[in-house]
Each structure stands twice: as C-alpha cells, then as structure tokens.
Amino acid sequence: MGFKLLSKLLVYLTASIMAIASPLAFSVDSSGEYPTVSEIPVGEVRLYQIADGVWSHIATQSFDGAVYPSNGLIVRDGDELLLIDTAWGAKNTAALLAEIEKQIGLPVTRAVSTHFHDDRVGGVDVLRAAGVATYASPSTRRLAEVEGNEIPTHSLEGLSSSGDAVRFGPVELFYPGAAHSTDNLIVYVPSASVLYGGCAIYELSRTSAGNVADADLAEWPTSIERIQQHYPEAQFVIPGHGLPGGLDLLKHTTNVVKAHTNRSVVE
C-alpha cells in the first residue's frame, strides 16, 4: 500500500471513529477524501466538511520552486461564519470567499490569524475590503508590521502568557507558548472536538522541520505538551499544512522538532 493511500485511509478511519463516538456532533463529509496538494491548482481553494458547521479550507501556493498546501478553518456561528487564517495570499483568499459563498452561503463576518507569517495573514486586506472584521493577538499584529505583512485590524486580548485561553464565538483560542513562531495560536472547536494546530503542528508525513527561522526550538516541545494537557479530548487535529489526523500529530511534531534540534547540535 502506497504512503499517500495509507495517509488518506488514516484520515478516513479517524473521521469514521469520530462519527461513531459522537453521532450528534459529527456529520463528516462523505463526498470524498481530504484534498491534497496535487489536486488543488494554485489560485483555487477546496472546502472539506469535518463536522456539522465545521470545515477546513485548503489552498496551495508556490514557494521556492515548489507547491505547498495550506489549511485553515471555518466555523459556523449562528447565521454567520468565523474564518481562521487566510488562504495564503490575496488571490487565494478572494477564491476562498467565493467558494464559501458557493458552498455554504453564509457571510464571513470575523477572521482570526493564528500567527504573523504570510500563509496566515496574506489576504487580510481582501477580507477587510469584503467587510470582514480581522483579528490577531497584539504580538501577531506587531510582528506582521515588522515583517511588512498585512496586519489584522483588531487585537485579541488575554493571550499574552503561555497557557492563556479565551473564548471567541464558537471557538476557544489558546496560546501554548512559542513553537513554530513566538505568537502562534491554537484554535479548538469544543462542539466538535476539532483542534486546529496551525503551523505549530505537523502532518504525519512530514519528517523535516522546514521553516524554523522564527521558531523557538527549545520551547516548542513544552508548548505541545500544554496543548495535549489542555485538549486531551480532541479527536480531529488539523495541521497548518497537509493531512489531518488525531492527537498523534502532536507527538510526531515533537519528535521531528527534537530530531532537528539534535542534528543542529551535532553539526
């Protein structure tokens, strides 16, 4: 069995187990497998329904001669939608809004960016022009300005110390501490036991640490421990890039980060 097929099978099995364990909360999309990078042309966006009122959005972007996937989250909030992270750029984010209108038909009224990198804030200006209120932590807003990236308009308070959590509509926002970046936030959907790890969490097929220019490698494993301790009931975990899975993604990420750190020390 090929690795790609095995990865998709694991996603399907995880979703099936969740649907059985929580039949009222989960209505997993039966329309197909989780979209992969090879299936999404740059400039297009796919939506994948995880649970009743919960979707991931998947886009792709060219970077350094390669094409990478990027995940975000959409959560229903009454007759409105909360968006977590842009679709990595203005063109993708405009396509995301169009796809949401086509498939869901509810307005996106608020959006949260989970850290300051372009795959999370690139497209904020498109959201703002569409009347979406954009939010991020003060740290993310400051770092985005320093980096020359787009800056969300509103500040999220109460997320300055490791372990801080605040309720934001249908989700809980959690600051686990520094990891992929010093400002990275985690998003949890309690009604569906869905954990969105953003770039602080890796997919299972990833074996290298990737972009760690703004990471705190020493603190990252401790931050992941905080996530595990705060959300032990999480059933569906979405990484910032690639295929979702279960809580095993947290341990896998820790292993990859520690291996990278150990290699760096040896070198």
Rank of each mutant, 00 (worst) to 15 (best):
G72L: 00
S16Q: 12
L195G: 00
T114I: 00
R76S: 11
S113C: 11
T261D: 06
N184R: 01
Y196W: 02
E267Y: 06
A15W: 14
T254Y: 12
P107R: 14
D64R: 10
I17P: 05
V171G: 02
I17L: 06
H117D: 00
G43I: 03
Q61I: 13
V126L: 14
F3S: 11
H230P: 04
G242H: 03
I201G: 01
L83S: 02
L204E: 07
T14C: 07
S31T: 12
S162Y: 15
V67C: 11
L185I: 10
S70N: 09
A133L: 15
T182N: 13
G246Y: 06
L156I: 06
Y68C: 08
E33T: 11
L82F: 08
G122E: 11
L195E: 00
Q229P: 04
L127Y: 04
V112P: 04
A213T: 12
A94E: 12
A21K: 08
A51L: 14
I40T: 09
V124S: 12
E203R: 02
E99P: 02
S137Q: 15
A165Q: 08
F3A: 09
G123D: 04
L204S: 12
S162P: 15
L83E: 04
L83A: 10
A15P: 06
R206T: 07
F3I: 15
L13F: 08
W55P: 01
L243S: 06
K258W: 13
E267D: 14
R142L: 13
V194I: 15
Q229D: 09
G122S: 10
L47C: 02
Y12M: 11
Q103W: 09
L97M: 05
A95H: 15
T140V: 03
Q103M: 08
H260D: 09
I238W: 04
H241S: 00
E150T: 09
A90V: 11
E99D: 14
A192Y: 06
Q228T: 06
V67M: 09
A133W: 12
S70V: 05
S264V: 15
P107L: 07
I201N: 03
S56P: 05
Y188R: 00
F26A: 07
L185S: 03
L185K: 01
H154N: 05
R110I: 05
K8V: 09
T36F: 06
A136S: 12
M18F: 05
S264L: 07
P221D: 12
D216H: 07
D85S: 01
G78A: 10
D85P: 00
K102D: 15
D214T: 15
S56E: 12
E157H: 15
F3E: 09
N92D: 03
P176E: 00
G122F: 04
S16R: 15
L13P: 08
L73V: 09
I227C: 01
L5P: 05
K102I: 15
L173C: 03
L173G: 01
A15M: 14
S155T: 15
I227H: 01
Q229Y: 11
H260P: 09
F26W: 06
R263A: 07
D119A: 03
A234H: 01
R142K: 15
G72Y: 03
I151Y: 05
G163H: 09
P190H: 05
V265H: 08
S264I: 08
V112F: 08
A59I: 14
I238S: 01
S70K: 02
S27T: 07
